[in-house]
């Protein structure tokens, strides 16, 4: 349903969309049913000639059932939602499939720096390619990301991946994604980080293997030490 509005561009985007769809359907069902009963009762017991209004205390069993029965049914629905949410959370945040490549992502007021592995496909080596506000990925490849923040809390948000992860100063947060769609997509900061927060966007390019190899070959590495960016020790 959500992919009608924004494409699902990662292997787990469908899991997150499915969870949102489940919540939408269950909550939508109860919303429509309760509103229908509510307005039905209003209509049925509307003002009638010669019929005085009656005050109901809601203490009788037959009256309390209107609350308790839907309450327990909604709780049953909650079990499904929570079960689904735990599964999705575990898959996206707790599992870490083996990485084919790793990228380093650094948020600072108000730009993103992406350090890509160079031709040796290893991060933390001299041929790394650092780009500001440009992330280049190869489609159908499992990536680990190492997320850092230089100054304040940022949040690395890639709507097309359905990914949002806070970046905390002083910590290196590891996560993963596997792009499934080629094309250009948006990256944004999703945590208020100062006056330039609204302008802290970047471009994600997901390329075919051949296009990505051509891009890597066309870029020259930056001297990261000179750029005041200590090399990150990456455990593969």
């Amino acid at each position: 349903m959500i992919e009608q509005f924004i494409p699902a561009g990662s292997t787990y985007a469908g899991n997150i969309d499915g969870q949102i769809d489940l919540i939408f359907v269950l909550v939508g069902f109860w919303f429509i049913l309760s509103e229908a009963i509510f307005f039905g009762l209003i209509f049925r017991f509307r003002k009638k000639q010669g019929q005085p209004a009656e005050y109901i205390t809601g203490e009788e069993k037959s009256q309390k059932r209107w609350i308790t029965v839907p309450h327990f049914l909604v709780l049953v629905c909650d079990v499904f939602i929570i079960w689904g949410a735990i599964n999705v959370w575990y898959h996206v945040k707790q599992e870490l499939p083996p990485a084919q490549e790793t990228v380093r992502i650094i948020g600072q007021q108000w730009t993103w720096t992406f350090v890509h592995p160079g031709p040796d496909k290893q991060l933390g080596t001299a041929d790394d390619i650092a780009k500001v506000n440009e992330l280049h990925l190869k489609v159908d490849t499992t990536y680990h990301f190492k997320l850092e923040a230089r100054d304040v809390v940022h949040s690395f948000s890639v709507p097309v991946f359905r990914l949002k992860q806070d970046a905390i100063p002083g910590r290196v947060i590891t996560g993963w994604f596997e792009p499934t769609l080629t094309g250009e997509f948006d990256i944004q900061c999703a945590e208020m980080c100062g006056i330039g927060h609204g302008l802290m966007g970047a471009k994600l390019s997901v390329e075919s293997a051949a296009e990505h190899a051509a891009w890597v070959a066309s870029e020259s590495p930056l001297e990261l030490a000179a750029a005041n960016m200590p090399q990150l020790a990456v455990e593969e």
Partner: peptide, 18 residues
């Protein structure tokens, strides 16, 4: 303002495109 080592410049870059 688009060099990863230019912390101040990278702060100024988004301000300028405003």
């Amino acid at each position: 303002g688009l060099h990863p080592g230019d912390t101040g410049g990278m702060r100024m870059y988004p301000m300028s495109i405003w």
